[in-house]
Simulated assay, not measured.
Amino acid sequence: MLHREHEELQETMEPPIPIAPARMRKKPGSTEKLKQEVNRAFAMPVPAFSDLGKSANDLINKDFYHTSQATLDVKLKAPNGTNVAVKGKQGFDGVTSGSIEGKHTLKPQGVTITQNWTTASLLDTKVELADVVAPGAKVDLQNLWNPSKPNSAAQKLNLAWKNPNAHLRAFVNYGAASGNVDATVDAVAGHEGFLVGGEAAYDVGKGAVTRYGLGLAYQTPAYNASVNAIQNLNVIMASYYQKVNSSVEVGAKAGYDVQASKAAGLELASKYKLDPLSFAKAKINDRGIAALAYSTKLNAGTTIGLGLSLDTQKLNEAGHKIGTSLTFEG
């Protein structure tokens, strides 16, 4: 009887699911990896026209500290949420300049107010409205005024709107001294990582288009490339950026002057992350000017940067530059 019950129990049990050996299991192929990469590209926001090639431009231009003898940045946050930034720098000509900026955001209303005062007596006031007019829309009202110069005031109206497939902007400038109005519009459309955009500037007083340009780009989280035709399509700029791994980034930028039929510059740059708190950068251009930079975070609120610029064709001559940067955050 027990034998018969055992046989009936075996008949009611479902057969086991065969498990393939580890060597037979399917690994993600190149097609699946490509799909994952494309999906990540879909999730990337469409940049503004001026930001086509931004990754390469930032790698080449930012965090090189040789442009000034010394730079000091102090960033503080008040208890009411206001961000205060004090900046100062001394150039190689001995001239010292600085600015102080206060920025406060009213999050429920989507309003940000920024005021900046420089040692050149320029007062810059900006009011930003984000997602107030419509979802994805941003409106900036800006007033520039120098009390030491009569009729120096200027007003700017900046409009922007973006969604997952497009980024549109318009800038309207009015100068009180000249009474002139000029406007610039640009647009970028994106699909599956491919980007195409253009810009145009119009001078109301002259009644003419003063500038226009076009741009093409392709972006993914790991790399991007762009080609821009600027200055009325007379200068072509191409850039490439790649994040090789979590520690290494490389980039390049090249230009060509169509009217002069000659190259308009070439720059190569790289960045190496030494550890979570430090990185080193290097770049060189077609004129043989090389730059090195090192940045490290000393503690939670202090960062120091060191920079060096060398003319590799004139190593025995003066003209090399050394700069430092110190940033405090609190």
Rank of each mutant, 00 (worst) to 15 (best):
1 M>F: 05
1 M>E: 10
11 E>G: 04
18 P>F: 15
19 I>P: 00
20 A>T: 04
21 P>I: 07
21 P>G: 08
22 A>M: 10
22 A>N: 04
26 K>R: 09
29 G>K: 00
30 S>P: 00
31 T>K: 15
32 E>R: 07
38 V>H: 05
44 M>G: 04
47 P>G: 03
50 S>D: 11
51 D>L: 03
52 L>V: 01
54 K>I: 08
55 S>F: 03
57 N>M: 06
57 N>C: 02
58 D>N: 05
59 L>I: 11
61 N>Q: 10
63 D>R: 08
64 F>R: 13
67 T>M: 12
70 A>P: 00
70 A>E: 03
71 T>L: 06
74 V>W: 13
76 L>A: 04
76 L>D: 11
77 K>N: 14
79 P>L: 15
81 G>W: 10
82 T>C: 13
82 T>N: 14
83 N>L: 06
88 G>H: 07
89 K>D: 11
91 G>R: 04
92 F>E: 08
93 D>Y: 02
94 G>D: 09
95 V>A: 12
96 T>V: 12
98 G>Q: 06
99 S>A: 15
101 E>N: 02
104 H>T: 11
105 T>I: 11
105 T>K: 14
108 P>H: 03
110 G>A: 14
114 T>Q: 11
115 Q>D: 08
115 Q>A: 14
116 N>I: 01
117 W>Q: 08
120 A>Q: 10
121 S>R: 06
123 L>P: 00
126 K>A: 15
126 K>P: 00
127 V>E: 11
132 V>I: 09
133 V>K: 06
134 A>H: 10
134 A>F: 04
134 A>K: 09
137 A>Y: 06
138 K>S: 09
141 L>F: 15
147 P>R: 10
150 P>M: 02
152 S>T: 08
154 A>S: 11
154 A>Q: 13
156 K>R: 14
157 L>Q: 09
163 N>D: 15
165 N>M: 05
166 A>C: 02
167 H>G: 04
168 L>F: 15
170 A>T: 00
173 N>F: 09
181 V>Q: 10
182 D>I: 03
184 T>F: 05
187 A>I: 11
188 V>S: 05
191 H>E: 06
192 E>L: 09
193 G>L: 01
196 V>T: 05
197 G>S: 08
198 G>F: 08
200 A>E: 05
200 A>S: 12
203 D>W: 04
205 G>P: 00
208 A>T: 13
209 V>E: 05
211 R>G: 04
222 A>D: 14
223 Y>V: 08
225 A>F: 11
227 V>S: 02
234 N>V: 01
237 M>A: 15
241 Y>Q: 07
246 S>E: 14
248 V>D: 15
249 E>I: 03
249 E>N: 06
251 G>F: 11
251 G>W: 10
252 A>Q: 12
255 G>M: 13
256 Y>R: 07
256 Y>D: 05
258 V>D: 12
258 V>R: 15
261 S>K: 12
265 G>T: 10
267 E>N: 12
267 E>G: 07
270 S>C: 14
270 S>W: 12
271 K>N: 12
272 Y>N: 07
272 Y>L: 11
273 K>G: 07
274 L>P: 03
277 L>H: 05
281 K>H: 03
286 D>E: 13
289 I>G: 03
292 L>V: 12
293 A>W: 07
298 L>W: 04
299 N>V: 08
303 T>H: 07
303 T>N: 02
304 I>V: 14
306 L>G: 01
308 L>P: 00
313 Q>G: 06
315 L>M: 13
318 A>E: 15
326 L>T: 08
327 T>W: 04
